[in-house]
Every structure is written in structure tokens, then in C-alpha cells.
């Protein structure tokens, strides 16, 4: 039989407003899949459906080869054996750390429960806080205890709902790293929800980009970045320079040059998206671009450019340059483009 989680054409609505429309997804054992999308795209609802916290209106949820939702069945969350890590951690305030982690282990002898809880706390590096109360812990510590609690009953599936959004930036990077290690070393299948593309790329084996209740593209991070299916995905994974033009002779002319538009109908308006790192600059007195400002942002520099091509509208562009010196303000430059990082899509209808 198939292990892992299968979502089969899940549809759900709240009070008649559809929030998830035909989402299908399969998580292989030990795989970590991220649901990524802007707020309100239905990703958290999908996660809650997988947990059994919501009964989907349409479709089926299949967990380790058994239908747990759909076909007239709805197995309640307590019988699904899944772990859920909540955005606010949801530690029980009336129980200490030990009792929180042992909460899901009822039905086992006391000594065994404690041993398992200690083992989990050790795994997340919280052994020293067995007797602490949730309100005495920092955000990062609470997150670790919540992770230990969710993993303690050895669930076959872990569900993570924006698990790092409550932490400040530096702590987030650290906790994210630790969480990834814990999840990968327990080899549990994981479905995680996030709105942060960088986080998704950091955590996920595959990412499902969602918009308007549908999965737009499901692929490994590398493929999403290099071969986005549409302008939404391309711009979601990083800043882009957006230009528009009409398809003529199988190509679109833009101030940055002509780009092939394979498969696009002749004469329609197309959007051309160029990542800032696709642009390289060379100083040239005859260059058509002027440097407005250049700012060093850690390892790279961001250069704001004003490009004036003859018979074209003036456009503002961003170029991201690796190490080395950035050009000075007011300098004239020539722009070269790496066309593998330029994407051409039909302009959105709306």
C-alpha cells in the first residue's frame, strides 16, 4: 500500500465561500512538503483538512493507505495519529513541560511516558526545562517543547502551521535549522504551511505554491526558482524586473532586448520578468542606463537603474551584483542579460 499522505481533489468552503478548490498532493514517507502562498490562499485549511480538524466538502484524504476523510468517512483528529505544530505553539498553560510533552502518550505506563518525554526533550535540546512552566519559556523554547510534544507519540505525519512566524529573525533561522534536523532524523513525513518563500526553500523537499485555493505549481525548490510556471510563481520566489511587450515574430521586444516567447500567440501582450541577478553591468560612457543609487546589502549590492532606450518608455530596473565594487551614482552603464533567468508569460487577464 501507499504510505505517507495523499490529498485527492480536496475541496472545502466556509459558509459557502470556497477556500480550497481541488487540491491534490502526495507526500512520500520521510518527505517534507511545503504549502506556500499568500495569506488567504487556503493553505492552512488544507493542513487542517489533513489533520482532520476540518471535514472536507469534496475529495479524499488517504493516510498510510487508509481513507480517513471522504467516501462518507471522517476519522476525527484524535484517531489519525498525526502530529500538529501550531503557529502559537498551543502549549497547555496548566501543565508543566514534562506533562505537556507526555500529554499524547496516555495509555502507557507512567515510567514509559516519562522516559519517552525526556527522550524527546533531549532531542530538541530542552532537557533542562522538564519542570518549567510554559509561561516561563521564551518563544523559541516554547516552539521546541511544542515540537517535542507533537513528535512524542511517534506520528506517521507531522503538520506544521507557520511554525516559525512567532520568532524574531535571528532566532527563527536557528530554530528552523534545528527543526529541520529533528524532522529529518525522525524520518517523519511532513506537510508544512508557510508564506515565506525563503523558509519554504530552506525546509522543503518539494514546494506546492498555492493561490486562490489551488496549487499553481508543485516542484522542488530549484525547479520553482529556475522554471516557474507563471509570473505569480516567478515573482513569489524573488524580486523581478517586470516589463511588458507585444509578441511579434515569436519574440517580445523590451528595453532590455528581445526575448523568445515560445508557444505564445502572435500579437498578444506578454509579461517579461527578469531577476535582478540576471543583469550584469559594465561601465560605458555610451551606456543607455544611469545608476540612480547603489546600496550594499550584505553579500550583494542592489543597484537602481534608469534605462532609456530609443523609442522605448523609460524604465526603472534593479540589478543585484555579487562581490566586487558597485558602480557609483550617476555613472552610465551598459546592461547585459542572462536570458536563462528571464521568463516570458502571457500578460494576466486581470
Amino acid at each position: 500500500m501507499t504510505d505517507g499522505l495523499v490529498l485527492d481533489s480536496i475541496g472545502h468552503d466556509y459558509d459557502g465561500v470556497p477556500v480550497v478548490k481541488g487540491v491534490s498532493l502526495r507526500i512520500r514517507p520521510g518527505e517534507l512538503v511545503c504549502l506556500l502562498g499568500p495569506s488567504g490562499c487556503g493553505k492552512t485549511t488544507t493542513l487542517r483538512v489533513a489533520a482532520g480538524l476540518e471535514a472536507p466538502r469534496l475529495g479524499r484524504v488517504i493516510l498510510n493507505g487508509k481513507v480517513v476523510s471522504g467516501d462518507g468517512i471522517h476519522l476525527p483528529p484524535e484517531e489519525r495519529h498525526v502530529g500538529f505544530l501550531f503557529q502559537d505553539y498551543a502549549l497547555f498553560p496548566h501543565l508543566d513541560v514534562m506533562a505537556n510533552v507526555a500529554f499524547g502518550l496516555s495509555g502507557k505506563p507512567r515510567a514509559e511516558r516519562e522516559q519517552r518525554a525526556r527522550q524527546m526533550l533531549a532531542q530538541v535540546g530542552m532537557s533542562g526545562y522538564v519542570d518549567a512552566w510554559p509561561h516561563q519559556l521564551s518563544g523559541g523554547q516554547q516552539q521546541r517543547v511544542a515540537l517535542a510534544r507533537a513528535l512524542a507519540p511517534s506520528p506517521s505525519l507531522m503538520l506544521l502551521d507557520e511554525p516559525f512566524s512567532g520568532l524574531d529573525k535571528r532566532l527563527r533561522d536557528q530554530v528552523r535549522d534545528e527543526t529541520l534536523h529533528v524532522l529529518k532524523s525522525t524520518r517523519v513525513s511532513t506537510l508544512m504551511v508557510t508564506h515565506d518563500p525563503e523558509e519554504a526553500m530552506f525546509m522543503a523537499d518539494r514546494i506546492a505554491v498555492m493561490r486562490g485555493g489551488e496549487i499553481v505549481q508543485l516542484a522542488p525548490p530549484d525547479e520553482l526558482y529556475n522554471h516557474p510556471r507563471d509570473a505569480f510563481v516567478a515573482s513569489f520566489f524573488g524580486e523581478v524586473n517586470l516589463m511588458a511587450g507585444v509578441v511579434r515574430g515569436g519574440a517580445v521586444a523590451t528595453p532590455l532586448g528581445r526575448f523568445a516567447a515560445p508557444g505564445l500567440t502572435e500579437g498578444i501582450v506578454a509579461e517579461v520578468l527578469a531577476r535582478p541577478e540576471a543583469l550584469t553591468l559594465t561601465a560605458s560612457a555610451q551606456g543607455h542606463a544611469t545608476v540612480l543609487t547603489a546600496r550594499r546589502l550584505g553579500r550583494s549590492s542592489l543597484v537602481h537603474l534608469r534605462l532609456e532606450m530609443p523609442e522605448m518608455a523609460i524604465c526603472h530596473l534593479h540589478a543585484r551584483l555579487g562581490g566586487g565594487a558597485a558602480p557609483a551614482e550617476g555613472e552610465r552603464v551598459e546592461i547585459a542579460v542572462d536570458s536563462s533567468q528571464v521568463f516570458v508569460f502571457p500578460a494576466a487577464a486581470d
Binding site: R48, R80, F92
Partner: peptide, 26 residues
């Protein structure tokens, strides 16, 4: 919070059990 409730459910407690082990003590 609703997520505490959901946490108890995903950790294997039913509706009444959640009421007894989470809600009532709090």
C-alpha cells in the same frame, strides 16, 4: 485557544477527554 483544543485532539484526546484534561483544569 482553539489551537490548544486542536492540539489535544491531534494528540489523541476526544471531545469529552479534551474538556476534562484541558478545559476544566484551565
Amino acid at each position: 485557544t482553539p489551537s490548544m483544543e486542536a492540539a489535544a485532539r491531534t494528540l489523541g484526546e476526544g471531545g469529552l477527554g479534551t474538556l476534562r484534561r484541558v478545559h476544566l483544569p484551565i
